[in-house]
Design a protein around this nucleic acid. Structure first.
Length: 935
RNA sequence: GGGGCUGUAGCUCAGCGGCAGAGCGUCUGGCGUAAUGACCCAGAAGGCCGGAGGUUCGAUCCCUCCCGACCCCA
């Protein structure tokens, strides 16, 4: 028996089946900086229309987690896809470097500023710490395969950035958005300082809980509001009852809050001092009266809270009147449904007070004592004042009850002592005074939000947010470089020029330069009358100004940019702060589009947490499955909602990665010996099936490009994966094997197939490049033909236009599916094993005959059977109808197997010199090779 | 507690008024070595479309309520 194996063309490629990504990727990465891949892509796209995705700076603290990976990978996919789509898409990564978490990290090592380190040394330690964190995170981001200007990122702590931020702040002041006000903050009486939210712990605490009456001043007004006849209520006193656990805040009371949509009841009761009437939330009426030991004699009326808005009430012990206001923070969980409101002593109170323009008057000093001159309690500590105030209310006959009450209450994390809310002077950006809110709401509508509900979400937040308090009493932040008059509190008349001078100094010496500055250096003799402000800006101002600060230094990033892309929490965060800053500076949005993604959760949809033990570390995934599998996982999920991750999900992802890799490997292996420059078959001369494959690829490419433009990567994943399995694996490549392996290496039949495969893989490597960046780069090295250095420098592959097919492929593919089903039945009976052991007869009505007969004898290659014959006319009784006017019969063939091509053919054994071969193999081995026109 | 969003097969996702779909995975089978650190092909099983009401001739789809997840705020 002659061995014909050397006469068939087997696939040959160095592109291995096993990916070994965990080992291979780091090696590839090691080359990239030397190749300056980012620079090459920039050079290749110079002069194209620009697409700018502006990076939201992650906070420089801690190793990256899976959420960082999702965010950066999505950005990278978009930047690379836009570049392939013909844009110049720069990517300058950034980091957020100032702020409390870094201060806390440094405090852990060195203690608070002023203890072991002075403030300046403390800042230096913060700077060094942030630098380390940036390096740590940068290494991981690069390992993900994210391409960007990693050597020149923007850091909010760069002196140039800090100076730009101060200049931008100056323009905001110039535009009239800044004012000085007061705001309640957590205040520790032992620290004598403000505490950030992160420095507060909640512990159980017992407070004096009291119910207090606020008398309605004008009963006639009340009658009108609740639909009672004029005078109908007589002169019996009416009070709104409130419940509070902080009696000492009552001197600062400015209002009583109701909920607009709650029902309230007016009930009559008999007290020790006589008949009176109380207003209580209907649902809390019984519970409240029970607490007071009273019984409702009569329920006189019921009405919505909204009816009482701005009704005047008398303060229970001070000679002043306060209004009824409405707020959503009023609940039915405890109390009376009416809430004592002291804007100086509570954040909700402050927020709702802002909406009503209530005064923020704080009578408590930094030591927790009431300021001298405060009526009733001047000079007393808050806890001492409680007793005095309760007694005073009782004497005024306004006290309904008084009991100790245990609840969760904020404590200082260092002193473990209860903290208070205390209003302090702060700097604000007004939402109203220069129409900031109105402008922001106007411009939100001009932005393309993806998903579309982002618009709803941020609109709601902008509509309801209070003025932005941008000052913090901290050490590690960009200064608010102002001078304030010691007596009047007015800003220095040269403020705008002084801010610029401060910026100049910060540009040289960083924020440290401001803190080191002697006021006289800038304002001369005025220094005697002015205080230098040492507050720093809220870090949200740092990142919120990134479009301005980065744009000033990097001309390729020019606002408004095309896209911001972050997690959905940033509607409250960076999207929000950036919008307000841009409106304050330029009265426009900083971005044209905003895209959000959800958070990662486990396979049960629960968030990642150490205690649940469901945390997936990106570093671990990269070290085992590889970054490309992580990237493919990101691409495969619908990131608009929660993004599930688990071992099973990643395993499935790795499976589909393998399938795509192997499909490419098959294509590359069969392109062995093909030079696209000389061996391509012209579109008009292609074997019909190859033309079909190219047309199908064109169609799919259009869908993929559209999906990239829509940022619908999970659809791309599905489409490409299905293409590999259904169109290629299940059909085209399966049919092609016979022709590739058995026809002569340089024959038209094989070159036609290679031409199609070449274009398919050229197209596919680009489809994959934004997602499987490492693998695409690897594929690139194995593709035939002269080509540029990296697939990332390319644009989408221009697939050849093939002439419209005269062949009805859908009909033939339906026939193929029917034959496959019949073959399966035959296999079940044991009559055949492989499809090549079978022959097929097809009977077709005259109208459909030309369609199915179009391939002639080559139909057998499409069906992968040894014979396929089409007959016009009525089917015999033993055939199986498979469609309108079509019947088939599949039967084992008795012909002899050709040892070379495995087809069972009648002419095997008839050829002298090649007794084991069929006729076409003889031609293929000894002659010019067989002719294929269709399959 | 409020606002936003979400729930389709074990997994990832389509469908979004007219007979519940794809791929993976699972199971079963096939063929070889002609995609071999395995690959390829075929077949089958798998769903009260989160639950309950409503609108409609007809609801996975529209409306209401409930349950659960997630984000933001309190």
């Amino acid at each position: 028996m002659v061995d014909y194996k050397h006469t068939i063309n087997l696939p040959q490629t160095g592109f291995s089946m096993k990916a070994d990504l965990a080992q291979r990727e780091p090696k590839m990465l090691a080359d990239w900086p030397a190749r300056d891949l980012y620079g090459k892509v920039r050079a290749a796209s110079r002069g194209r229309p620009r697409f700018v995705l502006h990076d939201g700076p992650p906070y420089a603290n801690g190793a990256i987690h899976i959420g960082h990976a999702v965010n950066k990978i999505l950005k990278d996919i978009i930047v690379k896809a836009r570049s392939l789509d013909g844009f110049d898409a720069p990517y300058i990564p950034g980091w957020d470097c100032h702020g409390l978490p870094i201060e806390h990290a440094v405090e852990k090592k060195h203690g608070k500023p002023g203890q072991k380190l002075d403030a300046n040394a403390f800042r230096a330690a913060c700077r060094a710490f942030a630098r380390e964190q940036v390096d740590l995170q940068r290494a991981d981001f690069k390992r993900l395969g994210v391409l960007g200007d990693w050597d020149n990122p923007y850091l909010t702590m760069n002196a140039a950035y800090e100076a730009e931020q101060i200049r931008a702040f100056g323009r905001i002041v110039h535009n009239g958005h800044l004012y000085r006000g007061a705001k309640p903050v957590h205040w520790c009486l032992d620290c004598r300082s403000a505490l950030a939210e992160a420095e507060v712990e909640y512990e159980e605490h017992t407070s004096p809980a009291i119910d207090v009456e606020f008398r309605v001043v004008d009963l006639r007004d009340l009658e009108r509001r609740i639909g009672q006849p004029a005078g109908g209520l007589g002169d019996v006193p009416v009070s709104i009852a409130i419940w509070t656990t902080t009696p000492w805040t009552l001197p600062a009371n400015e209002a009583v809050a109701l909920r607009a949509a709650f029902r309230y009841a007016l009930v009559e009761v008999e007290t020790s001092t006589g008949r009176e009437r109380l207003i209580l939330a209907s649902e809390l009426c019984d519970a409240s009266l029970a607490r007071y030991g009273l019984r409702a004699l009569e329920r006189l009326a019921e009405f919505d809270g909204v009816a009482l808005e701005r009704l005047e009430l008398a303060h229970p012990f001070l000679p002043k009147r306060v209004p009824v206001i409405l707020g959503d923070h009023v609940t039915l969980e405890a109390g009376t449904g009416a809430v004592h409101t002291a804007p100086a002593h509570g954040q909700e109170d402050f927020a709702v007070g802002q909406r009503y323009g209530l005064p923020v008057v704080n009578p408590v000093g930094p030591d927790g004592r009431f300021l001298p001159g405060t009526p009733l309690v001047g000079g007393q500590r808050c806890n001492e004042a409680n007793a005095v105030i309760v007694q005073t209310i009782a004497e005024a006959k306004r006290l309904l009850q008084h009991t100790p009450y245990q609840h969760s209450y904020p404590h200082c994390w260092r002193h473990k002592t209860p903290v208070i809310f205390r209003a302090t002077p702060q700097w604000f950006i007004s939402m109203e005074q220069r129409n900031l809110r109105a402008h922001a709401l106007r411009d939100i509508r001009t932005v393309k939000w993806t998903p579309a509900w982002g618009e709803q979400r941020i609109t709601g937040m902008i509509e309801n947010r209070p003025d932005w308090c941008i000052s913090r009493q901290r050490t590690w932040g960009v200064p608010i470089p102002l001078f304030v008059h010691k007596e009047t509190g007015a800003l220095h008349p040269d403020t705008l020029a002084l801010i610029d001078k401060a910026a100049d100094r910060v540009a040289q010496g960083g924020i440290e330069a401001w803190f080191a500055l002697e006021p006289a250096e800038l304002i001369g003799a005025d220094a005697a009358h002015y205080d230098k402000v040492t507050d720093v800006m809220d870090v949200w101002a740092d990142s919120g100004l990134s479009f301005e600060c980065v744009g000033a230094q990097r001309p390729e990033i020019e606002a408004p940019v095309d896209l911001y892309l972050e997690g959905s929490d940033q509607h409250r965060g960076w999207f929000h702060s950036s919008l307000l800053m841009s409106e304050a500076l330029h009265a426009r949005a900083p971005y044209k589009g905003v895209l959000t993604h959800g958070f990662t959760v486990d396979e049960k949809g629960r968030k990642m947490s150490k205690s649940l033990g469901n945390v997936v570390l990106p570093q671990k995934v990269m070290a085992t499955l590889g970054a490309d599998v992580l990237r493919l996982w990101v691409a495969s999920t619908d990131y608009a909602n929660e993004i599930g991750v688990s071992d099973e999900i990643l395993k499935r992802t790795a499976d589909s990665y393998r399938r795509m890799r192997n499909t490419v490997r098959f294509l590359l292996g069969n392109l062995h010996g093909f030079d696209p420059a000389s061996d391509q078959v012209a579109p008009a001369d292609l074997v019909a099936l190859d033309a079909w494959a190219i047309a199908r690829t064109r169609e799919l490419q259009a869908e993929i490009i559209a999906a990239y433009r829509d940022y619908a990567f999970h659809l791309i994943y599905q489409k490409v994966h299905n293409f590999c399995i259904v169109d290629l694996g299940g059909l085209y490549l399966d049919v092609l094997k016979d022709r590739l392996y058995t026809t002569p290496a340089k024959s038209h039949a094989r070159r036609s197939a290679q031409t199609a495969m070449f274009h398919i893989v050229e197209a596919m490597v680009r489809w994959l490049a934004p997602i499987l960046s490492f693998t695409a780069e690897e594929i690139w090295q194995y593709l035939p033909g002269r080509r540029g250095e990296s697939v990332q420098c390319e644009v989408w592959h221009a697939l050849p236009e093939v002439p419209a097919s005269a062949i009805d492929w859908p009909a033939l593919l339906a026939l193929r599916a029917a034959v496959t089903r019949e073959l399966e039945k035959l296999r079940d009976t044991g009559a055949i094993g492989a499809p090549l052991e079978a022959q097929v007869d097809v009977w077709c009505a005259p109208t459909g005959y030309p369609r199915l007969a179009a391939l002639g004898d080559e139909l057998r290659f499409l069906l992968i059977t040894s014979a396929a014959r089409i007959h016009e006319g009525a089917p015999p009784p033993d055939s199986v109808p498979v469609a309108e006017g079509v019947a088939i019969r599949v039967a084992p063939t008795k012909a002899t197997k050709c040892v070379r091509c495995w087809h069972r053919l009648e002419d095997v054994g008839l050829h002298a010199g090649h007794p084991e071969l069929c006729g076409r193999c003889v031609t293929n081995v000894t002659g010019a090779g067989e002719t294929r026109r269709y399959a």
